[in-house]
């Protein structure tokens, strides 16, 4: 029973990460920009959040710590996502290449910054890329000794807001128009560049928060040399499986969350233990599942029609 609880907790934690990041990808792609760089954005968001958690006083109220960390993660993610915006929107660069560069850049930059800070703080003796935040992380939990945290509440709020924003508002209508038929949007006076920047910045904010949630999932310190272990790409698979729709994305995220959580808690289940699978199999599971899911769902793709294509004003 305890193991089931643990599984549920970890599932919700990882599903939160995937939901947030996949929603970010969804907003970017709905505006017409393919965001392969989510992994890098997550790392930068994690960096922003970890810096706050690692350096702020644990004496502050939990909600203040929470808000400051989320704010830092968002801002870091958004600033970093501008790299994609500038390359894809202003310079019409290959979006896959720009995104790939961002993943490498995000990781290298985070390592350099954390190491530089550690070197400076220790006078050269500590050149690790680690930040620890045991005390502050505890303040974010809703119940001590569990994984239920304020982040889950935040994810639920963001999910509902993302749905409403996309389907019920003027902004959402315009954003989707830019991803489907930018010429049509432009012909009725909508600035495609502005809407695409909005999409990319939202993906930066959500990807950043997702990164922060990831590094606080069951751990109280993070080594940036490891990055976020391909979660940015798992989120892309979740987004595709969720057909670019917020209400489906959350279901896809829960499914992937279960498999990722099994890697943490599989030893506690008798029937799984009886299978005697080696741990690496559980580690691989989310990636294998996402390959299988993609194989079944990619044929009939509901991707926004104009995604990945640089918008040129003079195109008719």
């Amino acid at each position: 029973m305890q193991q089931v609880m643990l599984l549920i907790q970890y599932t919700l934690v990882y599903a939160s990460v995937l939901t947030l990041v996949a929603l970010g990808g969804c907003y970017s792609e709905r505006s017409g920009i393919i965001n392969i760089g989510l992994e890098g954005i997550m790392v930068m968001g994690a960096l922003g959040g970890a810096l706050v958690l690692g350096h702020i006083s644990p004496e502050l109220p939990g909600i203040v710590i929470f808000l400051l960390a989320v704010l830092a993660a968002m801002v870091f993610g958004m600033i970093f996502s501008l790299l994609l915006g500038v390359a894809a929107i202003n310079f019409k660069a290959d979006q896959t290449l720009a995104g790939t560069a961002m993943n490498m850049l995000g990781l290298a930059l985070a390592i350099v910054i954390v190491k530089a800070l550690n070197i400076a703080a220790s006078g050269g003796s500590n050149n690790s890329a680690e930040i620890a935040y045991t005390a502050t992380r505890e303040k974010l939990l809703l119940a001590q000794g569990t994984e239920f945290s304020m982040f889950m509440v935040l994810t639920a709020i963001i999910l509902i807001a993302a749905y409403i924003l996309l389907y019920k508002t003027r902004f959402g209508l315009r954003l989707m128009a830019c991803g489907e038929h930018p010429q049509a949007a432009n012909s009725v006076g909508i600035s495609v560049a502005k809407m695409r920047y909005a999409g990319v910045l939202i993906s930066g904010a959500l990807g950043g928060i997702g990164g922060l949630v990831y590094i606080t999932a069951g751990v109280s310190k993070t080594n940036f040399e490891v990055g976020v272990a391909g979660f940015g790409f798992l989120a892309l698979a979740v987004m595709i499986f969720g057909q670019w729709k917020p209400h489906r994305i959350v279901l896809a995220a829960l499914l992937f969350g279960v498999f990722r959580a099994l890697a943490n808690v599989n030893s506690g289940f008798d029937f799984l233990a009886a299978l005697n699978l080696p741990q690496p199999v559980y580690n691989m599971l989310p990636y294998i599942i996402s390959l299988i899911v993609l194989a079944f769902t990619s044929k009939r793709s509901h991707a926004p029609k104009a995604e990945g294509i640089p918008y040129d004003k003079s195109t008719r």
Binding site: L83, A87, F91, A93, D94, L97, A98, T100, A101, M102, M104, L105, L107, A108, L109, I111, V112, K115, A116, I119, G124, N127, A129
Partner: peptide, 23 residues
């Protein structure tokens, strides 16, 4: 010299170069 700098500066430079290749 790791007393002053992280060695990943070189990775950072390669990553920036890839990013610039987009342009």
């Amino acid at each position: 010299d790791t007393r002053f700098y992280p060695v990943q500066i070189a990775d950072l430079i390669s990553a920036i170069i890839i990013y610039l290749c987009g342009f």
